[in-house]
Simulated scan of single mutants.
Amino acid sequence: MSITLADARVVTPEGVHEGWITIEDGRFTHIGQGQAPRDGHSLGGRYVVPGFVDIHTHGGAGGSFPSGDQEEARRVAAFHAGHGTTTIMASLVTASLADIARATALLADLCDDGLLAGIHFEGPYIARARCGAHDPALLRDPSAGELSELLKAGRGHVRMLTIAPELPGGLDTIRTAVSEGVIAALGHSDATYEQAIAGIEAGCTVATHLFNALPPLHHREPGPMAALLEDERVTVELINDGVHVHPAMLRLAASVAGRSRTALITDAMAATGMGDGTYRLGSMEVEVSGGVARLVEGGSIAGSTLTMDIAFRRAVLEVGLPVAEAAEMASLTPARVLGVDDRVGSISVGKDADLVVLDDDLTLHAVMRQGTWLESPPAGR
């Protein structure tokens, strides 16, 4: 099947241009400027950006990846696809080793099916002082042996591990993760600047939701954030919901790390798209009020109710980033992190035809995944 999308503002890594796109058999085959050479479907001058790639998501539409329930996971993926996320990784939270292994094995089936791009262990190897919405009773010191056993449950689909490198066994566990093909992410950590550098040297290449669950920057004690921002090997995640990170701090991070090292994420939990109320994130009870999720006990921020279309829109309209730069942060940069940028992440000839059509005000109009138009976003949009 062939389709041409005409009269579009096509957003590529090189910029924004008036033009057209041809899609055949689920892939981009031609990208041109000006008037399309054949009749096509007019997009009325709307923006076309690459499908979003979210490397940190816990849930949505009332469903949760940490539950390990496959129907819930399918609902979460469908909900976020309706908001433009055409590639999604399932993030777990701190739990018992048995519960992590069980959820991992069930989610691995959905990775086999191509629904999920991988599994992310956010915990249990994180710092008690920076555990945020993770159950402190279930935290553990890192163990390379334990991790290897957990990875077996994932059958090669565990793609990322968030870890605090300063913990006993942290550096060895980072090295083991990397040797097993798992991305090591420094996060939920109380590391010093020097300890963070040691973690990066051991193999950490991602900063889990930069600025959140990390010591603040200080001019005499720079801490892990300075180490993460200045090292060109590290990609920094940012939750752009206006709650987790002030727009000025996102601008600062983007100016230091650049578009190729800054990845927008949602860190979305089950309440996303569902409205205020009481929900669960792993073993923890969460109260959502005014769209902000906080632990019932203690009040820590507990994930977000963000979707990637809103994160992208905020990046342009509120943070002030150029459209092409925001698109790279929401698509190509996280695709590079996952090592799937040869297939997704940009509107480029030969890649999967994953795209999002946006109106002039950057609100979502339509989503295509592998050449197929998806239905309108599910209820709760």
Rank of each mutant, 00 (worst) to 15 (best):
H56N: 15
V319H: 01
E287W: 00
V16H: 07
A78D: 15
S179M: 09
D342I: 13
V296F: 07
Q35I: 12
Q370T: 13
M329G: 04
Y193N: 07
P142K: 08
G242I: 07
A330G: 07
H219A: 09
G82A: 09
L107Y: 09
T29G: 15
V182I: 12
A103I: 08
I88P: 00
S148H: 07
S304C: 03
L161M: 13
A144N: 07
D25Y: 04
A248S: 14
G114S: 11
A271K: 03
T104P: 04
L214D: 01
A311P: 00
F65V: 14
T104S: 07
S346K: 04
R261Q: 10
E232Q: 08
E194K: 09
D276F: 02
A185G: 10
G156Y: 07
A324M: 08
L107S: 00
L355C: 14
L92H: 10
P334M: 15
D135H: 08
V367M: 06
V10C: 14
L167E: 09
T208D: 05
T22K: 10
D309Y: 01
R130S: 10
V340A: 15
R74L: 14
M225I: 15
L116E: 06
G350L: 07
D99Y: 02
N240M: 06
Q195F: 06
A127K: 04
S255T: 13
V292T: 12
A103E: 06
L97R: 08
D39R: 05
G123R: 01
A117G: 13
E71L: 06
E149L: 10
H219L: 12
G371C: 12
A207P: 00
R313C: 13
R220Q: 13
L147Y: 02
V319M: 02
L138F: 05
W373F: 14
H218Y: 10
A184P: 03
T162I: 07
D341T: 09
T333K: 03
V178W: 06
V288P: 02
T29K: 13
E297V: 09
D309M: 02
A379I: 11
L362S: 05
T104D: 09
A6H: 03
E14C: 05
C131H: 04
L5T: 11
G223V: 01
V234I: 11
G320A: 08
V319Q: 02
D109W: 04
H17D: 08
H244Y: 10
P215G: 09
P50I: 13
S376C: 04
V236M: 02
E14G: 13
T278K: 06
V11Y: 03
A137V: 05
T205K: 01
L147P: 00
T87C: 11
H218M: 13
G258N: 10
